[in-house]
């Protein structure tokens, strides 16, 4: 049967400054908000287990220096710092398991 007019939604979507009266999908509503990447945070790109933490709090680190080794997906991965800086905080120690996206370590930018 023809869809009745009063079944229409009251939600809105803006495209090119025009506001359209329309339904929003579940998937659209559940979309992930974008976040600015922060290279001072060393985040697990895979879930895994910490093998070895190679630095201590307060240590100076150089870009591309390996700071943590962890095991994930049957492989040992070397995690490197992407900045020159200092270790601000370490949140894991050897043997800890962590999930994807977990912050393993935080660095401070070296102020020149």
């Amino acid at each position: 049967m023809m869809t009745k007019k009063n079944q229409y939604p009251a939600t809105a979507l803006v495209v090119d400054d025009s506001t359209y009266n329309t339904l929003l999908t579940e998937k659209y509503l559940r979309r992930k908000k974008w976040q600015q990447p922060d290279n001072r945070k060393i985040t697990a790109f895979l879930p895994g287990t910490v093998r070895e933490v190679l630095v201590k709090k307060g240590d100076a680190v150089k870009a591309e220096q390996t700071v943590i080794r962890f095991e994930a997906m049957k492989m040992v991965n070397n995690v490197q710092s992407s900045i020159n800086g200092r270790v601000k905080e370490i949140y894991v120690s050897a043997g800890d398991r962590f999930s994807k996206g977990f912050v393993l370590m935080e660095l401070e930018q070296e102020t020149a």
Binding site: Y8, L13, T22, L23, L24, T25, K27
Partner: peptide
């Protein structure tokens, strides 16, 4: 389909 997401094109 103007009824859903104003009928826009997207990835899906």
């Amino acid at each position: 389909q103007p009824l859903v997401l104003a009928g826009v094109l997207d990835v899906d």
